[in-house]
């Protein structure tokens, strides 16, 4: 049944904060394996959409379907278990934990032993820790972080913190990966490298990517389709180059 369903379907999603309609009647369909962009001026409501998709905010109305399954209103934990992982605009790492432990925390539900088996060091603890550590190292290798396993996350330079956050999200083995401004604060070289990484990740981990980004080189470089939000409403939607050349969209960006 889930074979033919899109990876993620957003239907008439709205949320209201007091008098402000932060997101108003947004719909989008993201096919499996797509690299999809969500763009728009500052304060347009992009992060708010991510927060609704991941259960941090409960939408006022509308629904979210993950491979056909309605996940609206579930808790963030349950939504991650269902298959959506994310990064945050203002990086949220487990600061005081090592790089390796950040990813191992991401592998939490992949680590199969109970608290008692852990606290008493029963055999399964050793077997699973070994397996999960290998897996975490492999993931960190993809992001060039294999030399910093023991570094505290907060001591990583900014660009590597962003990469670690993506690695941690991927550790949860998501169907859909949400990236909130992954290139923020990166120089053009780092951004170019990030674009390669995102493409690579999509292939290797067989994941659908939805990303928010202000850097139009990144968006036009890797996103196949985009939705433009303006004041919480959809301004345009479709194939990337067409949308980016749409006069409405250009005005919205220049007008900010």
């Amino acid at each position: 049944m889930s074979e033919n369903n899109p990876a993620l379907e957003v239907r008439n999603l709205s949320i209201q904060f007091g008098g402000l309609k932060a997101v108003d009647d947004l719909s989008m369909t993201i096919e499996k394996g797509a690299l999809y962009g969500l763009i728009g001026p500052n304060g347009a409501g992009k992060t708010t959409v991510f927060n609704m998709l991941t259960g941090v905010y409960k939408p006022t109305s509308g629904s979210v379907l993950l491979e056909g399954e309605n996940i609206t209103g579930r808790s963030p934990t349950e939504i991650n278990k269902a298959g959506i992982a994310r990064t945050f605009q203002n990086i949220r790492l487990f600061k005081a934990m090592s790089v390796l432990d950040n990813v191992k925390a991401g592998l939490h539900n992949e680590t199969h032993y109970t608290a008692i088996e852990g606290a008493l060091r029963l055999p399964r603890y050793f077997r699973e820790e070994k397996r999960v550590t290998e897996k975490a190292k492999e993931l960190l290798g993809v992001f060039g972080l294999e030399k910093e396993l023991d570094t505290k996350a907060q001591n990583l330079p900014y660009g590597k913190q962003r990469k670690l956050e993506i690695a941690r999200a991927l550790a949860t083995d998501p169907k859909v990966l949400l990236l909130d401004e992954p290139a923020a604060g990166m120089n053009p070289n780092e951004t170019a490298e990030l674009m390669d990484t995102i493409r690579f990740v999509r292939e290797k981990f067989d994941v659908t990517v939805l990303l928010i980004e202000h850097d139009m080189r990144l968006v036009s470089g890797i996103c196949e389709r985009v939705t433009v939000l303006n004041f919480g409403q959809e301004l345009a939607q479709g194939e990337t180059s067409a949308v980016l050349n749409d006069p409405k969209v250009i005005t919205a960006y220049l007008g900010e």
Binding site: T54, V56, P76, N80, A85, R92, A105, H108, A169, T172
Partner: peptide, 8 residues
Amino acid sequence: IAAQSVGI
């Protein structure tokens, strides 16, 4: 929030 986001 990040802890929830990784399914904890």
